[in-house]
Simulated scan of single mutants.
Amino acid sequence: MTTWNPSKVELVTSEAALREVVEPPAPAIAAKGIAGIDELSRDFIAAARLFFLATTAADGSVDLSPRGDAAGSVLLFDDDRTLAFADRDGNRRLDSFRNILQHPRVGMLFVVPGVDHVLRVNGRATIVRSAPFFAEFAARGVEPRWR
Rank of each mutant, 00 (worst) to 15 (best):
Leu119Ala: 11
Ala57Lys: 12
Val112Gln: 09
Ile100Val: 15
Phe97Gly: 05
Pro113Ser: 08
Ala135Glu: 15
Ser130Arg: 13
Pro104Arg: 09
Thr126Asn: 12
Ala54His: 00
Ala138Phe: 08
Ile100Met: 11
Ala31Val: 02
Ala48Ser: 15
Asp63Met: 09
Ile29Gly: 02
Gly107Leu: 01
Asn91Met: 10
Asn122Thr: 11
Ala58Asp: 07
Asp78Phe: 02
Asp69Leu: 03
Leu83Pro: 02
Ala139Val: 14
Phe137Glu: 05
Ser41His: 14
Val112Met: 10
Ala131Pro: 06
Asp69Arg: 04
Gly33Pro: 05
Glu136Asp: 14
Arg98Glu: 10
Ala86Val: 05
Ser41Tyr: 09
Val121Pro: 01
Leu119Tyr: 11
Ile37Glu: 00
Val128Asn: 03
Gly60Phe: 04
Phe97His: 13
Arg98Ser: 12
Asp89Pro: 08
Leu83Phe: 15
Ser96Ile: 09
Asp89Lys: 10
Phe52His: 11
Ala84Leu: 06
Ala35Ser: 15
Ile37Trp: 00
Ser41Gln: 13
Arg93His: 09
Arg88Gln: 03
Arg67Tyr: 07
Gly36Glu: 11
Ala138Asn: 05
Gly114His: 04
Val128Cys: 03
Thr126Trp: 08
Thr126Val: 10
Arg49Asp: 14
Lys32Leu: 09
Arg81Thr: 06
Val111Cys: 07
Leu64His: 00
Ala138Met: 10
Gly33Glu: 14
Thr126Cys: 05
Phe52Gln: 02
Val62Pro: 01
Pro132Leu: 02
Val115Gln: 12
Leu94Glu: 10
Gly141Asn: 07
Asp38Gly: 07
Gly114Asn: 04
Arg120Asn: 01
Gly60Met: 08
Asp63Arg: 11
Glu136Gln: 15
Gly114Gln: 04
Ala35Leu: 13
Ser61Arg: 15
Ser65Asn: 13
Arg129Glu: 14
Arg88Gly: 00
Arg81Tyr: 00
Phe44Asn: 03
Phe133Asn: 04
Leu119Arg: 12
Ala84Cys: 06
Asn122Met: 03
Gly114Phe: 07
Arg105Ser: 11
Ile34Phe: 04
Ser65Cys: 08
Asp116Lys: 13
Gly60Pro: 01
Phe44His: 10
Val74Cys: 01
Asp89Thr: 09
Arg67Asn: 10
Asp78Gln: 08
Thr82Asn: 05
Phe85Val: 05
Ile34Gly: 05
Gly141Lys: 12
Ile45Tyr: 07
Asp89Glu: 12
Leu76Trp: 05
Ala71Trp: 13
Arg88Tyr: 00
Ala48Met: 08
Ala57His: 15
Asp87Lys: 02
Val111Glu: 06
Ser61Asp: 08
Phe97Gln: 13
Ala30Asn: 08
Arg81His: 10
Gly141Thr: 09
Val106His: 00
Leu75Ile: 13
Met108His: 02
Phe97Ser: 06
Arg81Cys: 02
Gly68Val: 06
